[in-house]
Simulated scan of single mutants.
Amino acid sequence: MRIAVCDDDRQEQEKFIEALHEWDPTRSPECFSDGDSLLKAARESPPFSIAFLDIYMPKENGVDIAVELRKISPETGIVFVTTSEEYAVDAFALNALHYLVKPVTANGIRDAFARLTKQQGRDRPTILITVKRGSRSIYLEEILSLQSADHRTEISLSDGELLSVWMPLGELEQQLDDRFLKIQRGMIVNMAYIDRMEPDGCTLRNGIHVLFSRKGRAAIRSAYDDYAFAHLSRRHSLRGGKR
């Protein structure tokens, strides 16, 4: 995730970084003192996920910078930062994520990232997990399985990464959608990653074989059949629409 901060005052940049690290010390922003350097960096790949723009700078207006940034990277979430609420109407006319009044706080930054997660989730649903002293958003489509482990939950991702978070499985389950299926106590899998179904269990794409809960086998297989049929029908529908 690329984070941009544009403020002509170096001390203000440092205060922002301090507040950001108070919320999540793992995040490192790219700081710019003028709009031109920010826009130049915005043309690089990947695009900025979020940009914090000082609205009033001696030679520039953050709203004008935001207009140009929108043209380069419409997916970038914009947060305006200022000492005054004078430009609030202009800011939200650009569909800004948030409007922060200095001094920026860790809570304000946390709120901005929460709004970013909500905005992104409209197209690609995400799950928000707690890592160390901060948080991280993961696309549901990237999760292969979730499993309870003592007081933690281990999350296996499709790229092979394994995350161990201090969050109960039940809390995470509330953020999942209908592509996820509980196949035994303390174990939830993403049905999109089931490679092979068997009478007493299934094999995931990472090669792991998981047994079903004995009492729930019939219900589990029925839920998977419904899921598979729905997605097969959807694929046929999409193919038909392309003819």
Rank of each mutant, 00 (worst) to 15 (best):
E60T: 02
E60F: 05
G62P: 08
G62M: 14
I65K: 13
I65A: 13
A66D: 08
V67W: 09
L69D: 05
S73V: 05
S73E: 02
S73D: 01
P74C: 07
P74V: 06
T76L: 07
G77T: 08
G77V: 08
F80A: 02
F80T: 00
F80I: 12
V81T: 04
T82H: 04
T82W: 00
T82F: 00
T83V: 11
E86Y: 14
Y87C: 11
V89R: 01
V89E: 14
D90I: 05
D90P: 05
F92C: 03
N95K: 04
A96E: 03
L97E: 00
V104M: 08
T105D: 00
I109T: 07
R110L: 12
D111N: 12
D111G: 01
K118D: 13
Q119F: 10
R122K: 13
R122V: 03
R124M: 08
R124E: 12
P125L: 05
T126A: 04
L128D: 15
T130Y: 09
T130Q: 15
V131A: 06
V131L: 10
G134H: 09
G134A: 08
R136A: 06
S137D: 12
E141G: 08
I143Q: 12
L144C: 11
L146I: 05
Q147D: 07
S148W: 06
A149E: 12
A149C: 13
D150M: 11
E154P: 00
I155Q: 00
G160R: 04
E161T: 15
L162P: 00
S164D: 14
S164W: 10
M167W: 01
M167Q: 15
M167N: 05
L169A: 02
G170W: 04
E171V: 10
E171Y: 09
L172Q: 05
L172I: 07
E173P: 00
Q174A: 13
R179F: 06
F180L: 09
K182D: 02
I183G: 06
Q184G: 10
Q184K: 15
R185L: 11
R185E: 08
M187Y: 14
M187A: 11
M187K: 14
I188S: 00
I188A: 01
M191R: 14
Y193P: 02
Y193S: 03
I194P: 00
D195T: 05
R196I: 11
R196P: 07
M197S: 13
G201W: 09
C202K: 04
T203Y: 04
